[in-house]
Design a protein around this nucleic acid. Sequence first.
DNA 1: CCCTGATTCGC
DNA 2: GCGAATCAGG
Length: 181
Amino acid sequence: MAWTEDRVATLSKLWAEGLSASQIAKQLGGVTRNAVIGKVHRLGLSGRAKPSRPKPAKTQTTARATPKPKPAKAQPATRRSAAKPKAQPSSLPVSTEPPLEAKPLKDGSYATILTLTDHMCKFPIGDPSADEFRFCGRKTDPDEPYCTPHSMVAYQPSRRRNSSGKMISIGPAPTSRKRLR
DNA sequence: CCCTGATTCGC
DNA sequence: GCGAATCAGG
């Protein structure tokens, strides 16, 4: 697609109207937003509503100028952030209370969002909006957000329980959850 | 992850 | 001149 005069006219108009490059591109058809932006720049009408422009100059020249080694990136690996138990089990079938209560720390206090550390079970205890809210705080296995018992309730597999109500023997680990990556 | 505009550069 | 690729933000 070539930039005919009328197309450029349309481009200018839409751009002036504040439409985004992709919007304009879509409307014009046959061009990508990059093309639009490129053209806009070439036409010299880049900045639209730019009150201030403290742009200290982009720093991407290096990437371009450099031969670009591209050593095969290690791995995207979606960052696994700290566990977020979220929502309280207030609407669970039976007991609203988890099998395990929070365990006092050595100093007698309880684990809070402030005192939770790496190897402490992050299983939430109580109402998150309440002052008494705390975390289990027990020791956890490396990498695990919860202590073993809490892992079981937290990651209750889609597996059922047996008739006696007991859990089906799950392996030592918190079940299957280390997916992905 | 979606989107934005900005920039560079091979064509 | 063109626009894909890429960057930097939101």
